[in-house]
């Protein structure tokens, strides 16, 4: 087929571009995915009994708010990355505040914790729940994000997938944090981060396959 013919054929198809954008789709898919994750949360975990009184402590609130902030920033970045040549802009820089604050909290906790209880608090008692549950709760969210983002046209599918996974992991960790009663940053700055990293990796791998077009 000659290129000229193809152009004429395409121009004959110049119906108005389909309206539903990636943003609209994410707006539809993400609440559904959050619902699935919340149902899983109530099936397997549920809120800690002392949530209301502990969450007022800024160090405890941080383990919920930091991943929430991360999720919001990653969501914006994922959406931007789903369009060709849209610059990531300010959120791409601001997002680094999240690990920086987490590191700051970790260092602060390290300094203020008595040396003989540091290891105990770092190790905690719930790593075998924390890591898999953050990943499991993130999966429906990653799936929803990727399904919606296939509508876009990421020129870096793996990277976009990672951002989708990061947004999903942030939301999953926000949800998980209301169950978790390990309140030392020694614990959560370490193991939440690892869980988020794993979920991001899954997003990257899935994205590099599913977001190709």
């Amino acid at each position: 087929m000659k290129t000229e013919d193809l152009i004429n054929a395409l121009a004959a198809e110049a119906a108005p571009a389909p309206a539903a954008s990636v943003e609209t789709r994410v707006g539809l898919a993400l609440p559904l995915a959050v619902l699935v994750s919340v149902v899983l949360y109530f099936l397997f975990l549920g809120p800690r009994p002392d949530l209301a009184e502990r969450i007022i402590d800024p160090v405890v609130a941080a383990k919920t708010l930091l991943p929430l902030g991360l999720a919001m920033l990653a969501l914006v970045l994922a959406l931007r990355s789903a369009r060709p040549a849209v610059p990531l802009g300010l959120p791409a820089r601001v997002v680094w505040l999240v690990p920086a604050i987490a590191l700051g909290l970790f260092v602060w906790a390290f300094v203020t914790t008595a040396p003989d209880s540091r290891f105990m608090l770092w190790q905690g008692k719930s790593i075998p729940v924390c890591l898999p549950m953050i990943v499991i709760l993130s999966l429906p969210l990653t799936a929803g994000m990727l399904a919606a983002m296939r509508r876009g046209a990421s020129v870096r599918p793996g990277f976009s997938g990672a951002l989708a996974g990061l947004a999903a992991a942030g939301l999953a960790t926000t949800i998980y944090s209301t169950f978790c009663n390990e309140d030392s940053p020694l614990f959560y700055a370490t193991w939440y981060s690892l869980g988020i990293l794993l979920a991001t990796l899954i997003g990257a791998l899935a994205g590099s396959r599913l977001l190709r077009w």
Partner: peptide, 15 residues
């Protein structure tokens, strides 16, 4: 031609 088809299929991703 593949690029032209891609431009066509993804023309809604241009803002």
């Amino acid at each position: 031609q593949e690029v032209l088809l891609a431009v066509h299929a993804k023309r809604h991703t241009w803002r």
